[in-house]
């Protein structure tokens, strides 16, 4: 197991090289000049040229890339062009917001989806099943930013129950944190709930047909034990595999949702950095996203072995 984890951690290196290379190339392929965006509108060509010189943008592409990799090896992601602070610091400041959003929405979607899927499977082909699955279909079909806007209209504008945006850190005020995170987390979770509950339902239906379920019933166990213990743990095996993919969808979804709800998170940081050609922030942000994906999928694999004793690494 330890060897497996180490092997997986080593696999991070080529992934990071590719991610950074791609972002380096892409940012320099699309038009736009960070120096022009930094400088005043009235700045002369010479002044812009000077900024370019300072940022090292006049160096050959390969030199820039190697220079950046060199800094990365020392754990230095560089300085933001515009924010007046290091990229590490900028990400670090916004990390709690993004983590709050994705984790809350992950917990919400997983618990709700598995519950709904199990209910739908146990009550298969009844009105309850059809109701739950129609709800799931809506979740899959509607884009999350639109869902977010609708939630704002309903809960913030009309009912006035929850704020339409902003963020209160967890360390300051738990209820304030929950109030600011709830709507974005729900709008982000709906798609996941739709996907996961359908997968849970299908898997549960299949598992309930298995011989060991009949054995469990022949032992005299109650239906809740048969479903909640014997069937559920088997259902979780494929569901956990999906969770890794699900979490990566949450991270990419948070980029949009943070903008809709004006949450100061990593997604929003990355979004504005792209618009303003803040190269170091873009690269740093992408590394953050890549590392978190790898980390989550590693967790999923470990969890997988824990749930299914037949899986060994």
């Amino acid at each position: 197991m330890i060897a497996f984890i180490l092997r997986r951690l080593f696999a991070v290196i080529p992934v990071l090289l590719l991610v950074t290379l791609a972002s380096f190339l892409l940012m320099r392929l699309i038009p736009g000049d960070p120096a022009m965006l930094i400088a005043d509108i009235s700045a002369s060509d010479a002044e812009i040229e000077k900024i370019r010189e300072q940022l090292g943008l006049n160096e050959p592409f390969l030199t820039q890339l190697l220079h950046w990799y060199g800094n990365l090896l020392r754990g230095d992601l560089g300085e933001s062009y515009l924010l007046g602070r290091s990229v590490t610091q900028a990400i670090w400041e916004r990390l709690p917001t993004t983590l709050s959003l994705t984790l809350l929405s992950f917990v919400l979607s997983t618990t709700i989806a598995v519950t709904l899927g199990v209910i739908a499977a146990v009550k298969a082909n009844t009105w309850l099943d059809q109701f739950v699955m129609s709800f799931a279909l809506i979740g899959v079909a509607l884009p999350n930013f639109w869902m977010g806007l609708m939630l704002i209209i309903l809960f913030s504008v009309h009912l006035g129950w929850l704020p339409s945006g902003g963020y209160v850190p967890l360390s300051e005020d738990f209820w304030g944190w929950l109030r600011t995170c709830t709507l974005p987390a729900i709008s982000l979770a709906l798609l996941q709930i739709g996907l996961l509950s359908r997968i849970t339902r299908a898997t549960m239906l299949e598992v309930l047909q298995q011989d060991y379920i009949r054995t469990a019933r022949a032992k005299g166990l109650s239906k809740s034990k048969v479903v909640g213990k014997h069937a559920l743990k088997n259902v979780l095996v494929p569901v956990i595999t999906i969770l890794g993919i699900s979490f990566s969808l949450l991270i990419s979804g948070s980029l949009v949702i943070e903008t809709v709800f004006s949450l100061p998170g990593v997604g929003k940081l990355l979004g504005s950095a792209i618009l303003r050609r803040d190269y170091p922030v873009i690269q740093g942000g992408l590394i953050f996203v890549a590392v978190s994906m790898i980390f989550i999928n590693l967790l999923v694999d470990i969890l997988y072995a824990w749930v299914d004793p037949r899986v060994r690494y």
Binding site: D211, H230, V237
Partner: peptide
């Protein structure tokens, strides 16, 4: 009936390979 099943009347099945739950000892 549950108090009878597995207690006073038990059953064993044809397929030992799939009749035990794979994820529990």
């Amino acid at each position: 009936m549950r108090a009878v099943r597995g207690n006073e009347i038990s059953m064993i099945f044809q397929e030992p390979m799939s009749s035990l739950n794979p994820v529990f000892t």
